[in-house]
Amino acid sequence: MLSRLNPLTTLAASGAAIALTMAASNWPVSVAVAAAVLAAGTGAGVMRRVLAASAVILLPLWFSLLVLHGLFFPEGRIVLAGWGPARITVEGLAFALEMGTRTTACVLVLLLFSFVVNVADLVAMMTTRRIPPQFGYVLASTLTLAPAITDQLSRIRQAQEARGLVLGGSLLQRVAAARLQMVPLVLALIQEAAERAHALDARGFSSPGPRSTYREVADSRGQRTFRRAVLGLAAAAVILRLCASWFGVPVLPSLSAGNA
Rank of each mutant, 00 (worst) to 15 (best):
W246T: 07
G209Q: 06
R179A: 15
M126A: 02
E216N: 12
V90W: 05
G43A: 12
V238D: 09
G248S: 07
R48P: 00
W83L: 15
I190D: 09
V119W: 00
V50S: 00
S154Y: 06
A159W: 01
T42M: 09
T128C: 10
L233T: 13
I131Y: 00
L93Y: 06
I131W: 04
R215L: 15
P132N: 12
R227V: 08
I88S: 07
L20E: 05
R163H: 04
S212N: 04
T225L: 15
L242F: 11
A81C: 11
E161C: 04
D219Q: 05
S254N: 10
S25P: 02
A24G: 08
N26F: 02
R215E: 06
E216D: 14
L231P: 03
G82D: 14
A19G: 09
A148L: 13
E75W: 00
E98Y: 06
L2A: 11
F72N: 01
P85L: 13
A146E: 10
P133I: 00
I156D: 04
T150A: 15
A260V: 06
V46P: 03
R4F: 10
V31R: 00
V183H: 10
V138K: 01
P147S: 11
P85D: 12
E192M: 08
P132D: 13
R102S: 09
S25G: 04
A162R: 11
T142A: 15
V251M: 13
L233E: 05
Q173F: 02
S3I: 14
S254R: 14
A237S: 11
P74A: 03
G15Q: 01
T150P: 07
A24S: 14
H69Y: 13
A140E: 12
A19R: 07
M125N: 04
L59P: 00
T9M: 08
A178V: 09
L20F: 12
W27I: 05
G43R: 10
P253G: 13
I88P: 03
L68F: 05
F135W: 08
A244Q: 00
Q181K: 02
T142F: 14
L153T: 12
L185F: 06
